[in-house]
Design a protein around this nucleic acid. Structure first.
Length: 288
DNA sequence: AACTATTCCAACCGCAACAAA
DNA sequence: ATTTGTTGCGGTTGGAATAGT
């Protein structure tokens, strides 16, 4: 496909990006936008393929990226969306402002590993609520949503952004059981093996109905929890109405929590913001 | 302190879909 | 209609960081 003019094979650099390369790419996008990636390396003076440049921008340099650990709300939403969408990381990430598909995917993979460690025999059985029969689950959950008159999440719709953002800490804080309580984390110090909720916000009490999912419960020290959890899952979904989270005023919270890798470097943010609308996110999470 | 194992994340790869020629 | 080039996505890997012994 990608033949080089003149047949000259230019050795492209691979591996981690240096700060200088990042700067070149940032400068290029600030100047020209992120239109044609194949031409970016040449114009920007980078010895990378366009694909690599694009990935670097999307996964790391975008000014709207929210760095750091996933919040409890994000974690919960990923779990829920994955139960609906399966491994559609880009679609899941689209519901998480400031997060990339790669980030979500990595989170999920480590999450799965934790689940496996939690299960006694290391089998996948405890994951049945998520990975098995996804097609059937998908249809079933959509139907459930429809029956409840809820808003079926559409990946591209702006309302889903709002709905996601509407999962506000305040709105969800009333759920009694926390992930930690459900998941082998009865010891506050979390010194035991097994599931840890997100590494940095374990003290959060912000939880949602779908937390009481089977596989999560399977981590509980109580051996009966796994079986009960499967039932919980369906029940929790019955409780869920997307419309409950739409236009809930949750957006500002995410806005405030948003972090920018460039910190207060408004110049960098200004330079790139407004030139892209990656993943349908027209919001610059950095500018604040 | 040194070594080993594990975890996490950034980046790469291959493929499919789409657009332009 | 076909070919060629580009973009986007999901799976996988490599290696740095961290934890454990």
């Amino acid at each position: 496909m990608s033949k080089r003019p003149g047949g000259m094979k230019k050795r492209l650099k691979r591996g981690l990006w240096s700060p200088e390369e990042d700067e070149k790419l940032m400068n290029h996008i600030a100047k020209y936008g992120n239109g044609c990636w194949s031409s970016v390396p040449k114009i920007a003076g980078l010895e990378r393929c366009g694909k690599s440049c694009r990935l670097r921008w999307i996964n790391y340099l975008r000014p709207d990226l929210k760095r750091g650990a996933f919040s409890q709300e994000e974690e919960d939403l990923i779990i829920h969306l994955h139960s609906i969408l399966g491994n559609k990381w880009s679609q899941i990430a689209a519901q998480l402002p400031g997060r990339t598909d790669n980030e979500v995917k990595n989170f999920w993979n480590s999450f799965i590993k934790k689940k496996l460690r939690c299960s006694d025999d290391g089998s996948l059985s405890s994951l049945s609520g998520y990975n098995n029969n996804q097609t059937a689950d998908f249809a079933g959950y959509l139907d459930a949503d429809a029956l409840h008159g809820g808003v079926i999440p559409s990946v591209s719709s702006s309302s889903t952004l709002n709905s996601m953002a509407g999962v506000s800490p305040g709105g969800a804080a009333n759920t009694n059981a926390t992930t930690d309580e459900l998941c082998c984390n009865n010891n506050p110090s979390n010194s035991g093996s097994g599931f840890e909720s997100s590494t940095t916000q374990s003290s959060s009490n912000h939880h949602l109905p779908w937390l009481e999912l089977g596989s999560i419960s399977s981590c509980a020290e109580d051996g009966n929890a796994a079986g009960a959890g499967a039932d919980h899952y369906g029940a929790a979904l019955d409780e869920l109405k997307w419309s409950d989270y739409v236009f809930d005023g949750g957006y500002p919270q995410y806005h405030q929590q948003g972090q920018c890798i460039y910190g207060d470097s408004k110049a960098a943010a200004d330079a790139a913001a407004g030139q892209f609308d990656a993943h349908g996110l027209g919001i610059n999470w950095c500018l604040n």
